[in-house]
Write a protein that binds this DNA or RNA. Structure first.
Lengths: 340, 340
DNA sequence: CGCCACTATGACAACGTTGTCCGCGAGTGG
DNA sequence: CCACTCGCGGACAACGTTGTCATAGTGGCG
């Protein structure tokens, strides 16, 4: 059992190592960086000294001196605890690891000020690249960074006022498909429960819903739309209100994974359940009864696509900014295949 | 629409700002750090220059010069994508934010070498503190760091061979309770599906299971224990094998959230389902049918406790290392209350 | 009018590392 | 035996920032 007892000790530097090994500091540097031109016996002595002192090279100093890469990628998202974003995080981490980079993450909680604060903090740390799930619409603050050559990729939502690489999912197409699917099962009164309309994806999905209603010949009815922000309570009361309509909706489209879960919870003890299609897939959706039909898209694919784009830029790709839209697919599992 | 077009530009330094504002670099530093003794008009000029150049102070240089805090906390866990750990991550992020720190995370995937690599990388970055979910049993490599004053807190599992702050959950107590609960409902053949026994929590929970069997008068039966590592397939085949017994188990204890989910999937279309209690709570457990009874413990509580411990150390607490064991509680929801 | 206290600013070194360049000694070919 | 190369190691500056100390200006006061 080794303890950490004893006086707090100053951290060893290359100088200390050099002194102990009886060589110059530059030689230590050479050993640490696997540079050629060091006699094996000398290297041995240096390594022994490093081990004895527990020396770890100071990356702040290294980064400062080298000026180029800090070996870090900044990732700003809405909430790491949301399974969708933690999937994205994992994918980004994975691809970064292959490229020898560490990931620094931060949750913005949909607060534009917090997003900006995090992103700028990351820039101060001189991250090699930034991946951002935008909370706000103003990203002019990133222009100096981009000018200085820091690649920025926007994820899941586009930036408001800068032109940059962006990876999105097909929100509109997905919602159109959801509505079409429900309409094909005879539903004519299809409600939409969406997130706050100033969130890009929420708005796009609303547009898709509207378009889907029109295309499916159902007709768009304002009163069947309930936009957020939502929590469990507000979803429950919205459902209650909809149910009180003279012609209540027979089907629901839920705008994202959290809303879907809230809907499921609100409907838990209801006998006459409306048909349901949720946007975003989630674990256990297939094990619920009825299993929940969803518009699925892959968090890892999103993270990977964004990461690929970012690293391509780091590798020197200077083509015009790209916008990648990842496909979604309807996964019918039961909850959406109930006839009206 | 601002573009990032134009030549790639060198990043502005304090020197550039100083020249543009017609002051010395030290004055710029004073403004940036809100130090007193700068004439308001001068500060104004400096701020304008900063804005014009898009200057962001280089934290590598700052950290190097100041030598003290880098404003970062390193978090090594098993897999950010696992909801349990992403909950921990979020809690750590939250508490770090309040203390003005950024969190750097890395997933070890249960690989001791990877854990070590990540932790040492973080040390090279001179993180202010380390939070580690140990993958291995050897942590001697951290001794120099701890000597140098970097606080280390182990999370969810203890370290193998160093004495340090540790936050655990009551694995043994929880599993004992699970077994007792099932026994109270008349079960005499209770199987245990656990993770790889070299994982601390898996082993502790196995011990708890064994103890629980003894205490409940059920008797410990070797052949009802199936340890991992597990995936969906292996769980399915284990269940199949157990079912073939002359006296098949009438109840199951699942060793962690992933195993529980695998069990649920394997049992999805089975009519005669054994009673089930899972270790770890998970979202939607209450909405399944039957709702899944679990031994619940709080990921955020774990993250918060560890963070509190870490920051207490950073604030100078030098009392002997502590071991905190967080309570768990049985949440009966249905799946565990089936009579034998 | 000379001295002091005080404000506003600047010159300079140092943090730990790495890139550049230089030197020493041994081996090698003519 | 000399000139030249090659392998190895070291001295020194520089990265961008901040702490220390010095200094110029300013106004008050005896």
């Amino acid at each position: 059992m080794a303890g950490a007892a004893g006086r707090k000790v100053r951290r060893a530097t290359m100088n200390d190592v050099a002194r102990l090994a009886g060589v110059s500091i530059k030689t230590v540097s050479r050993v640490v960086n696997d540079e050629p031109g060091v006699h094996p016996a000398t290297a041995e002595r240096v390594l022994a000294a490093i081990d004895q002192l527990g020396f770890r090279r100071n990356l702040s100093a290294r980064n400062l001196r080298r000026g180029s890469s800090t070996g870090t990628i900044g990732l700003v998202l809405e909430d790491v605890a949301n399974p969708f974003y933690s999937g994205v995080t994992r994918a980004v981490e994975e691809i970064s690891r292959l490229r020898g980079r560490q990931v620094i993450t931060g949750s913005s909680d949909e607060d534009p000020a917090r997003e900006r604060e995090l992103a700028l903090e990351f820039c101060s740390r001189r991250v090699d690249g930034l991946l951002i799930v935008p909370a706000g619409l103003q990203h002019g603050y990133l222009v100096p960074e981009m000018r200085a050559g820091t690649p920025v990729v926007f994820l899941d939502r586009p930036a408001g006022d800068v032109v940059a690489d962006t990876v999105l999912v097909d929100n509109i197409g997905g919602t159109i498909e959801a509505v079409a699917h429900l309409a094909a099962h005879g539903h004519r009164r299809i409600a939409f429960l969406g997130d706050a309309p100033d969130i890009f994806t929420a708005n796009e999905r609303l547009r898709g819903y509207r378009e889907g209603c029109v295309r499916s010949g159902v007709g768009y009815q304002e009163d069947l739309v309930v936009m957020g922000p939502h929590d469990e309570r507000s979803i429950a009361s919205a459902l209650h209100r909809l149910k009180g309509f003279r012609e209540p909706p027979t089907a629901l489209v839920a705008g994202n994974n959290r809303i879907t879960v809230h809907v499921l919870r609100a409907l838990a003890n209801v006998v006459e359940r409306p048909a349901l299609v949720g946007f975003d897939d989630f674990e256990l959706a297939d094990l619920l009864s009825p299993p929940v039909s969803v518009i699925a898209h892959d968090a890892s694919a999103l993270g990977k696509a964004a990461g690929d784009l970012l690293f391509a830029r780091l590798d020197g790709d200077s083509s015009p900014p790209r916008r990648v839209v990842l496909p979604v697919r309807l996964v019918p599992r039961g909850s959406g295949e109930v006839r009206a």
